[in-house]
Design a protein around this nucleic acid. Sequence first.
DNA 1: CAGCATCCCGGGCGATACTG
DNA 2: CAGTATCGCCCGGGATGCTG
Lengths: 121, 121
Amino acid sequence: MTVSFAQIKESTPFVFDQNCGTRVVLDHIMSKWGVLVLSCLSDGTHRWGALRREVDGISEKMLASTLRTLADDGLVHRESLPTVPPHVEYSLTPLGRDLMERMLPLMEWVADHADGMLERG
Amino acid sequence: MTVSFAQIKESTPFVFDQNCGTRVVLDHIMSKWGVLVLSCLSDGTHRWGALRREVDGISEKMLASTLRTLADDGLVHRESLPTVPPHVEYSLTPLGRDLMERMLPLMEWVADHADGMLERG
DNA sequence: CAGCATCCCGGGCGATACTG
DNA sequence: CAGTATCGCCCGGGATGCTG
């Protein structure tokens, strides 16, 4: 049985209040690009260029800023190999993998239901 | 065992491409206010005023537009009682409840880990 | 190859006022 | 009570160009 939203708020008072840290984390991981970058990395380590190609439509600026934010949050690990030309690899941290275990079922649901939802609108 | 992101994309070609419907649905349900309104409604039927008070910080404009979007998507049911003064109730549709079954574990994770993530940043 | 700096536009969103 | 209407600001984010 999954927890209810009321139970979450009961066990953690003031959670989801306007100035609570949850709002910041939600903004990061549920952001337009954050979701897609995290999902992509859930398949394993990716290089910068691979992410740029896989996350369809993302600009370099947003890829850089999204990766930095997620790395600061401790969800993404950045590994820069001291080669020429540069070679940088991104992967999920254990915390990030833990998160994606909860997020992927949601992504699967969206993939399954999106078209049906929109054709009626 | 949860599905991998690669498996999702394999079983549904072109899903999560830039012009795919999934991007629209993601924008709706993972939006700043959409997440919170849906979570609130997952606890049961709420009146307009109750939502306004419970979703801390939301403006009337954004509450109205968020509710309309989610209703158009078939996730939220709007019931207007013909009384004076007006009395309108919002609740999740079966589709909405199905979605929240996948989203609430994620919300619980965020509530549990948010503070720890931010104090290091 | 993997970024950062700069410029700039559109619209998301908040504030305020008004209505059935 | 449950909205709609209007105004205006801010900033997300795209485009372009430069660097180690």
